[in-house]
Structure formats: C-alpha cells, structure tokens
Simulated scan of single mutants.
Amino acid sequence: MTQTHTTNILAKRTLLLAAAAIGFAQTVLFAILAPLGREVGLVEVQIGAIISSSSLTLFLVSPLWGRASDVWGRRKILLIGLFGYSAGTIMFAGVFQMALLGYLIPITALVLLIVTRVANATVMAAVSPSASAYMADITTVEDRVKGMGAIGAAGNIGAILGPAIGGLLASISLLAPLYFSVFITLVVAVLTLYTLPELPKKTVIKKQPRLKYTDPRIFPLIVAGVLLFMGFAIVQQTIAFRFQDELQLSGVQTAKIVGISLMFSAAAALFVQLLVIPRLSVRPFVLLRISMPIMMIAFAIMALGHTQNMYILSMCILGIGMGLAGPGFMAGASLAVSSTEQGAVAGIAGSCPPLGFAIGPLLGTYLYSIDGALPYWFAFGSYFILFFFTLKFKDKR
C-alpha cells in the first residue's frame, strides 16, 4: 500500500510537470504569433489559419492517441507527445526564421508554417489524452475532479511563466521564446522518460472501447466543450490584434503586453483551481453553468473597452471562468463512463479544445477584419446560448 501510494505521488508530480511544460509552450506561442505573423507579411486570417489547421489536426488524432494509450500504455504515448512536440516546434520556428531573413515570400511561408504546424500537432496530440487518462487511472472517483483540476492548475502555472519569460525573451528576438519552449519541453520529456512509472499491466486495458462522440452519456458535455473552447480560442487569437491596433503598439511591445495579460489570465485560473474548486462540492455541469456568466462579462469588456487596463481586466475575468469550466468539463467526461473507457473518453474530451481552436481562430480573425469588437460579441452570444444548453441537461450521479 505504501509503495503504491509513493508511486502514485511520483506519477502525479511527473504528470504535472508535463502539463506545465505544455502550458508554457502554448502560451508563449499565443503571445508572439500575431506580431510574428505580421512581421513576415501575413494578414489576420492567414495567421488564424495556422492555428486552425493544427487545431483541426489535434481534433482528428486526439481520440486515436487516447485509444492507443489503452493499448500501448499511457507512458509511451505521453513520451511520444513530448518529444514530438519539441521536434515539431524546432521545424515550425525554423520556417519563421527563414521568412524573417527574407528567404521565403509570405505565401510560401504560410504553406510551410501550416505543414510544419500540422505535423507538430499530429504528435503533440498524444500529450493531453495520455496525461488525463493516466491521472484517471491513479485517482479514485471521489478525487477525480481534484486530479483533473491539478492538471489544469499545472498547465496554468506553465501558462503564467510562459508569457512572463516569453515577454522578456521577445526583447532579444520574437523567435527566442519558441526556442526556449523547446528546451523546457525536452527537459521535461527526459525527466518523464526516467521518472514516470509504468502502470501495472492490469491497469492498461488491452481491448479498445468503441466510444463515440454521440454517446448519450457524454454528448451534452462534448457540445458544451466545443463551444466553450471556440469562444476561448476567438479571444486567444484576436486579443493581440486588439492590443496592437487599439494601443498602436509595435510587434515587440504587443508580445510583451499580450504576455502580461495571458499571465494574469492564467494566474486567475490557477487561483480558482487551487483555492476555490477544492472547497466546492458541486457536480461538473454546475461548474460549467457558473463559468458561463463570468466569461460573458469578460467578452463584453473586451468589446467595449479601449484601454490597456480594461483588456487586462477582461483577461483576468476570463481566466476565472476558464478555471471553473476546464476541470468541470474534463471531470464530467471522465465520470460519465466506466473505468475501462478512460483512455477513450480522455481522447474524445481532449479533442474538443482542438475542435474549438480549429473553428475559433479562423472565425475570430474573419470577424475582426470586419470590426474589432465583433469577435467578442459573437463569443458573448455563443456563451449565452451555451448557458441555457447546460441548463437543459443534468449530469448523473
């Protein structure tokens, strides 16, 4: 019993490090992608297409990696994701480097950026479902929400450090944060290789459950998850444009202030996940319902605001909402199915954020090209509908 408890503690710490590394890498990209894309001659919709194409890839392959983790083991799939993410990011940054040096015209750069990002996403998709399924394997049903919340909190710690460090490195070069994120992810991948225990053979299910998106046990959560992350993606992809255009900032200045806003947003989510959720005894769908009005307030401030402080405030409020919604969504999906379907449901649930991020950036950048406030009013309306959608369904005990 003591040995099992010690093994689980070591596994949890390793999973949290992996989640923090990915959180760091993702927020660094969102802080610099918009100004970096403009530096190489891309317009808003083209920059949005880079994220949308990779996010669509994540949506398509995440369920496959989730089922693969049931067969091959969580540890192997997690390692594939971490090492693959590092290699793919080097290629992605390399294309940007060539474009900045003038070796690629904008259209060629766009094609190569999409290709390398899609290749990166194909292996990166292995991280989320394998880590979530591993956490589900080593936690009890009663502790599942806390376990998923811990992964979310670790990701937010990385998301706090990412923009802060990335903003400093952007003063050297807009690409420096990307290269540093590769270093961080590689270090964590090596630590995972040597410290993450193999799960007992009986824990890894050999037969793949055929769980579908339309399964009535999880379908309401899937719909809620896609819409939830679509609205969040709209903000993530357009807030840099909002800062740069409304405040008349340079590319480096934009990267810095966006990094600060993302840092505050992640800190707010971390506060909720560390101090609020552990003290709440509510069902996952209740967390989703609470989060909707909070995030609608954030969207309204983004649409109506014209100052730096208002935008940062809106990002903090958005972070509070996502801090509630994220663990509620993941835990709700995990609790809806049996223990033999954890890998499959982790893959399906893990594909919802990528689908939202496949739709959100393209839609958000298109709406932004029409009017700077339009993406946030659209997100406001989507969450208004989503709130009433969540009222219609009751999660089963």
Score class of each variant (00 low, 15 high):
residue 275 L to F: 15
residue 318 L to E: 01
residue 290 I to F: 03
residue 235 V to F: 04
residue 293 P to Y: 06
residue 277 I to F: 14
residue 301 I to L: 08
residue 341 E to D: 12
residue 354 P to T: 11
residue 247 L to F: 06
residue 257 I to T: 07
residue 262 L to Q: 12
residue 288 L to S: 01
residue 267 A to I: 06
residue 248 Q to L: 15
residue 262 L to W: 14
residue 241 F to W: 06
residue 284 P to L: 08
residue 269 A to T: 07
residue 323 G to A: 10
residue 323 G to P: 03
residue 333 A to R: 06
residue 260 I to S: 05
residue 341 E to V: 15
residue 297 I to A: 06
residue 322 M to C: 10
residue 343 G to C: 03
residue 286 V to R: 06
residue 312 I to S: 03
residue 244 Q to S: 09
residue 266 A to P: 01
residue 299 F to Q: 02
residue 262 L to N: 12
residue 233 A to G: 03
residue 343 G to R: 04
residue 240 A to K: 05
residue 279 R to M: 13
residue 328 G to W: 00
residue 296 M to Q: 09
residue 325 A to C: 03
residue 350 G to P: 02
residue 341 E to G: 12
residue 240 A to R: 05
residue 291 S to Q: 09
residue 317 I to P: 04
residue 309 N to P: 08
residue 241 F to M: 10
residue 333 A to K: 06
residue 304 L to N: 09
residue 334 S to P: 10
residue 290 I to Q: 02
residue 279 R to N: 11
residue 239 I to Y: 01
residue 240 A to W: 03
residue 235 V to M: 09
residue 234 I to S: 00
residue 264 F to P: 08
residue 299 F to R: 02
residue 346 A to I: 11
residue 247 L to Q: 03
residue 351 S to F: 11
residue 317 I to W: 05
residue 263 M to D: 00
residue 289 R to G: 02
residue 330 M to Y: 12
residue 236 Q to R: 13
residue 235 V to Y: 04
residue 233 A to Q: 01
residue 238 T to G: 06
residue 234 I to A: 01
residue 298 A to P: 09
residue 326 G to I: 15
residue 246 E to R: 15
residue 340 T to A: 13
residue 265 S to I: 10
residue 295 M to L: 14
residue 339 S to V: 15
residue 260 I to R: 07
residue 235 V to Q: 05
residue 249 L to I: 12
residue 276 V to F: 01
residue 235 V to E: 01
residue 235 V to L: 10
residue 287 L to I: 12
residue 286 V to K: 03
